[in-house]
Design a protein around this nucleic acid. Structure first.
Length: 184
DNA sequence: TGGGCGATTGGCT
DNA sequence: GCCAATCGCCCAC
């Protein structure tokens, strides 16, 4: 799958290489686990819409709503390879042109949002609509099965193997378990 | 009503 | 490897 965003600055497209599944009501790791709130309202709508949230006081991450209306399942987009608009992506990420650093342009959920220029106002975008500023497109697949493993950085439901990535792809982000905050 | 904590990142040791 | 940055959300008080 490919995600493309278009702004006045231009377009950037990313081939998605790493995602995680979040099943609302039965998944303690999901933002929708405790019911609908102002923040997660988009998740309770129909599939194919973008749920963007702000975290750690400085980062945005995004999900594609996957379940039908009223069933808040979603897919967190964690990483990808920039396949279009790489100069704009480098500019947004403040990275010099280099084969080595290009790998990191969209490697990680917050980096992916920066590279595509997606922030708060992208929340609720219809990814399947004609002429949408952010569109989800069919893209070249790959041979074989995706790799699976536990989701990154979760305290709750850390055992569920609901992370999926393209094996051996260099743009996939490294796995990190949850780190408890140190007490005073 | 407020404090603890988060689906993270980048810089420094 | 370790840690600070930084603020909105949510629930226990």
């Amino acid at each position: 799958m490919v995600l493309r965003s278009t702004t006045s600055e231009g377009s950037v497209a990313v081939r998605l290489t790493e995602v995680e599944a979040y099943d609302g009501p039965t998944d303690p790791g999901s933002h929708a686990y405790r019911g609908q709130t102002a923040r997660n309202a988009v998740m309770f709508g129909p599939a194919g819409f973008l749920y963007v949230y702000f975290t750690y006081g400085m980062h945005f991450c995004m999900n594609v709503v996957a379940g039908p209306k009223g069933q808040p399942s979603a897919v967190l987009l964690r990483a990808g390879e920039v396949i279009e608009g790489i100069e704009l992506a480098r500019l947004r990420r403040n990275q010099p042109a280099s084969k080595k650093s290009d790998r990191d342009l969209a490697r990680g959920p917050a980096r992916l949002c920066v590279a595509l220029g997606i922030e708060r106002e992208g929340n609720g975008t219809d990814l399947l609509a004609k002429n949408s500023p952010i569109e989800l497109l069919d893209g070249p697949g790959f041979d074989g099965e995706p790799a699976t493993g536990p989701r990154v950085g979760l305290r709750e439901a850390a055992d569920r193997p609901w992370r999926f990535w393209i094996p051996d792809d260099p743009t996939v982000s490294p796995y990190r378990p949850h780190v408890p905050k140190k007490r005073a």
